[in-house]
């Protein structure tokens, strides 16, 4: 009971219109309205199959901006869509990888408007993200904090160690991707299309950061084995400094700051060895 009153019959046609408009040829940020409609669709129908069917029939490969906007749209649906979207996306990894091959054959070098390297990197990231979610179905699309995950990792420290390492690898990939995006800003353009991809990256990197922080702290508390965990600590500190820099650079982009709250991290990484009352607020 208490569900929304959705007209299930007319919505598939609507969905295709939204996908088409979200991935239009204009070099702008994909319109939130249309991306939101795709996300809402997966919740209303508890399925993302129509979304995939719809995006696959769009002629996005003909144009680099359209391809880029399609990848952004996929990313947002994975993040905010019904959890089933993450599961069902596994069948479409091949299609994503195919987009990358299409790029290499279709356009030499950077592409007319310089999106080719960004597309390659975006696909690389999404494929890694999907691989992570395949192996860790307990995580949601934005890595929002759930208490039980850190508890589970403490019970099995080996698994916890693995999970943290894999999350750190994803974090490194986000970092290279964001650097590439910044490096491809063009003067004389508002860069909105490129900046739009920073939105899910900021959200995801912060989700990962919060997870790693609480998992590392919890593992130190229960294991008490500082030596074994020291490689993770070294990597954690390095990632902290890179994230501070990333968020600082994002905070100078008006389009971005008006849209989302850029997280504020302390200048230095928190000490995960102790239950620290000055620790950054644990994920709520």
């Amino acid at each position: 009971q208490a569900t929304r009153n959705v007209d299930l019959t007319k919505s598939e046609t609507d969905l295709n219109t939204h996908i088409k408009k979200a991935t239009s040829i204009e070099e702008t940020a994909p319109k939130r309205k249309h991306v939101r409609a795709c996300i809402v669709y997966t919740w209303d129908h508890k399925s993302s199959q129509s979304f995939w069917n719809g995006i696959k029939v769009q002629p996005i490969q003909a144009d680099e901006v359209q391809t880029f906007k399609a990848l952004y749209t996929v990313h947002k649906v994975l993040q905010e869509g019904h959890p089933i979207a993450l599961k069902e996306a596994q069948q479409h990894v091949g299609w994503l990888e195919g987009l990358s091959r299409g790029m290499m054959g279709g356009m030499g070098g950077e592409g007319l408007r310089g999106y080719a390297p960004l597309i390659q990197e975006y696909i690389f990231y999404l494929v890694s993200k999907l691989k992570f979610h395949r192996e860790h179905p307990e995580f949601n699309g934005t890595f929002e904090y759930e208490e039980y995950i850190s508890l589970k990792s403490i019970n099995d420290p080996n698994e916890g160690y693995e999970t943290i390492s894999e999350l750190m690898t994803l974090q490194d990939q986000i970092d290279s991707f964001q650097k590439l995006l910044f490096a491809h800003f063009r003067t004389g353009s508002n860069n909105e299309c490129r900046i739009s991809a920073l939105v899910p990256l900021v959200q995801e990197s912060y989700g990962i950061y919060k997870f790693i922080t609480s998992m590392l702290r919890a593992m130190h508390t229960t294991l008490g084995d500082d030596e074994a965990l020291s490689p993770l600590r070294g990597r954690y500190d390095a990632q902290h400094y890179r994230l501070v820099r990333f968020y600082y650079e994002c905070s100078n982009l008006r389009y971005l700051t008006s849209l989302i709250t850029i997280p504020k991290l302390p200048q230095d990484p928190p000490n995960v060895l102790v239950e620290d009352e000055n620790a950054p607020a644990l994920p709520q």
Binding site: Q1, A2, T3, R4, K31, R32, K33, R36, I39, V40, W43, E80, H82, V199, L259, I260
Partner: peptide, 21 residues
């Protein structure tokens, strides 16, 4: 109380408005 249930169940409607432009 039904409003609360409705909102929980359909929270994605509200959540996805956090990026409304």
């Amino acid at each position: 109380e039904l409003v609360v249930t409705w909102a929980r169940k359909n929270i994605y409607i509200i959540k996805t408005l956090r990026e409304f432009i």
